[in-house]
C-alpha cells in the first residue's frame, strides 16, 4: 500500500503577536494518491495559511506534515526546498509567469533548480506544452498570451517536474467563464491521468467539480 500524498497530523499555525493570532487550528487530514480535493472557505478563514503549509512555503507551529511519507516538520530549509521543487506543482490565481520570457522558458523554470541539461529541460517542457495544447504559442512571450493561455502555461510549468501534488490556488479567479471552463477541463484531464490535485477556492462551481470537499472556517478544518 502506498503512502498518502498528504498526511496532516495535528498541524496548526499560530502567528506570534501581539496579539497572537491562531490562523489554523490543529487538524488532521489525509489526501490519498490520485484524489481530487477542493478546499473551500470564506475570505480570512485560513485557506491561504493551509495552502502555504501544505505547499511547504511556511512551517507549522504545531503538528507533523508528511508529504509522500516524508515528515517535513524537522527538515532544514534546503531539504524542504528540494522536496517542494520535486513533489509539489503550484498554480496561482495571478499566474506568476515571467512576462518577458517565452512560454516554453516559463515552463522550463519548473525544472531549472533540479539541474539537468538545458536541451532535455526544453524537450520536456515542449512535451508538456503539447499536453496543455499550447505548442503553437511555445515561443511567444508570456506577456502577450491571453489569460486562459497564461494559466495553461502555469499548469504546464507546475506539471513539468511530474509532482506528486498539484496545488492550485484559485486557478480560475482571474479568468472569464470560457477560459475558466477550459482550465477546469485541463485540470480534470490531468486528474484523470492519476495526478493528485488540490484546488483551494471560494468558487462553489469550481469546488463542486471535486469529489471531495474540505471546508475551512475560522481556522478550523472540516473534511
Amino acid at each position: 500500500m502506498t503512502a498518502p500524498v498528504v498526511e496532516l497530523r495535528g498541524i496548526g499555525r499560530t502567528y506570534e503577536g501581539p496579539p497572537e493570532v491562531v490562523a489554523l487550528r490543529p487538524c488532521d487530514l489525509v489526501i490519498a494518491r490520485g484524489e481530487r480535493v477542493s478546499v473551500v472557505g470564506p475570505s480570512g478563514s485560513g485557506k491561504s495559511t493551509w495552502l502555504n503549509l501544505v505547499g511547504l512555503l511556511d512551517r507549522p507551529t504545531t503538528g507533523d506534515y508528511l508529504l509522500d511519507g516524508v515528515n517535513t516538520a524537522e527538515l532544514p530549509d534546503s531539504a524542504r526546498t528540494e522536496l517542494r521543487s520535486r513533489r509539489i506543482g503550484f498554480v496561482f490565481q495571478s499566474f506568476h509567469l515571467l512576462a518577458h520570457r517565452s512560454a516554453v522558458e516559463n515552463v522550463m523554470l519548473g525544472l531549472l533548480y533540479q539541474g539537468g541539461k538545458r536541451a532535455h529541460r526544453r524537450s520536456t517542457a515542449m512535451a508538456v506544452l503539447d499536453r496543455v495544447g499550447l505548442t503553437a504559442c511555445a515561443e511567444s512571450a508570456a506577456g502577450v498570451l491571453s489569460g486562459g493561455e497564461r494559466q495553461r502555461v502555469a499548469i504546464a510549468r507546475a506539471l513539468v517536474a511530474e509532482p506528486s501534488l498539484l496545488l492550485c490556488d484559485e486557478p480560475t479567479g482571474n479568468l472569464d467563464s470560457g477560459s475558466a471552463e477550459r482550465v477546469l477541463d485541463l485540470i480534470d484531464g490531468v486528474h484523470r491521468d492519476g495526478q493528485t490535485v488540490v484546488i483551494v477556492t471560494h468558487d462553489e462551481h469550481v469546488a463542486a467539480a471535486a469529489p471531495r470537499r474540505v471546508v475551512i472556517r475560522d481556522g478550523l478544518v472540516c473534511g
Partner: peptide, 8 residues
C-alpha cells in the same frame, strides 16, 4: 516564484 519552484 523561484523559491516555490525550488530555488534556495
Amino acid at each position: 516564484l523561484r523559491r516555490a519552484l525550488g530555488a534556495r
